[in-house]
């Protein structure tokens, strides 16, 4: 046994230690970031509305009743009614669930494929890297909405196909970010140390690279959900996504479009909802980026 004094000597047995694991210090940084708090708080509220919202209203989101059409916002109909006499508040709340699911699901699928491709590209390099990166270059060359538009027109009009389209156009962004982070982490000496110990590639990737590149992935996913929601609503607005009478916000916006001068509230509320959700995700994403990845700041 060799007894050597610990170099810092600030913490001795018995004194209260600062227990700061990586996740805990991350939480500390998130807690003090204003955009994370505002964006995250808003989203929490919206998710609660999406889950429990239908209990707040007794109207049916798709029952047509022409006797109540184009009612102005009132105590009975908070957001008024549309051209088919349906309560807009009810439809917006039902649409919330749809919108959030489309955002989450498509980003999750896109991230899953993007992470796998990015890690293969960054960790193994060589010809796989060249092939994967050239394909992502091609995909990134298209404006997102145009690519999604092309995919949906090829697959057919439906909300499910919108999810697929949005997932596909999320893949290259994730692949890019994950590849870059993997390249950076792979060069670090602790990866060499694991190789020196004889660790397998899968152990290195799953236990040592992936946990150290979660921050950029989380940030990207959050920002990407906003883009996904916007794209999905855009496609539905163009009539390529959710079909009537589904209370999808993009489709509702399209319904309201024809009456925008006489009855602006029909288009206003679904439009506002899209704006609020997208802003909330962007705020959260920007905040998370500042909190998790100071280097990524533009």
């Amino acid at each position: 046994m060799i007894n050597m004094p610990a170099e810092t000597g600030t913490l001795k047995d018995g004194t209260p230690e600062s227990r700061t694991g990586p996740w805990r210090s991350l939480w500390q940084r998130m807690r003090t970031n204003r955009s994370v708090l505002i964006g995250g708080g808003f989203l929490l509220l919206l998710i609660l509305v999406a889950v429990f919202g239908p209990l707040l209203t007794h109207y049916d989101p798709s029952k047509v009743d022409y006797s109540t059409k184009f009612l102005k916002p009132s105590a009975a109909h908070w957001f008024g009614t549309d051209h088919n006499g349906r309560d807009i508040f009810t439809r917006v709340i039902h649409g919330m669930r749809l919108t959030l699911s489309v955002g989450f699901i498509s980003v999750m699928i896109g991230a899953a494929f993007g992470i796998v491709l990015g890690i293969i590209s960054g960790y193994y390099g060589g010809k796989w890297d060249t092939i994967i990166m050239r394909i992502t270059d091609v995909m990134l060359a298209f404006p997102g909405i145009l690519l999604a538009l092309a995919i949906v027109s090829a697959l057919g009009k439906s909300l499910f196909n919108v999810i697929i389209a949005v997932s596909i156009f999320s893949v290259p962004t994730f692949a890019r970010i994950v590849r870059g982070s993997t390249l950076a982490v792979r060069k670090l000496e602790y990866i060499d140390a694991m190789r020196t110990l004889g660790a397998s590639d899968s152990r290195i990737i799953f236990r040592h690279i992936l946990p150290n590149i979660t921050s950029p992935i989380i940030v990207q996913a959050t920002l990407r959900i906003a883009v996904a929601i916007l794209t999905a609503s855009g496609l539905s607005f163009l009539g390529l996504g959710a079909q009537p009478p589904t209370p999808e916000w993009g489709a509702m916006l399209n319904d309201g479009r024809s009456y925008i001068t006489e009855h602006p509230h029909v288009a206003l509320f679904p439009g506002l909802s899209i704006v609020i959700v997208v802003i909330a995700f962007n705020l959260l994403g920007d905040g998370l980026r500042d909190a998790l990845d100071p280097k990524l700041k533009k």
């Binding site: 670090l188 000496e189 140390a193 004889g198």
Partner: peptide
């Protein structure tokens, strides 16, 4: 054959505790 690395700030995985790192090394071999 083992190696000790140059940069003490890059040679340890920031997400593992000291004991976890040593236990993992023993687990691998």
């Amino acid at each position: 054959l083992q190696m000790i690395f140059q940069d003490p700030y890059a040679s340890l995985n920031p997400r593992k505790t000291a004991a976890q790192m040593l236990e993992e090394a023993m687990e691998i071999q």
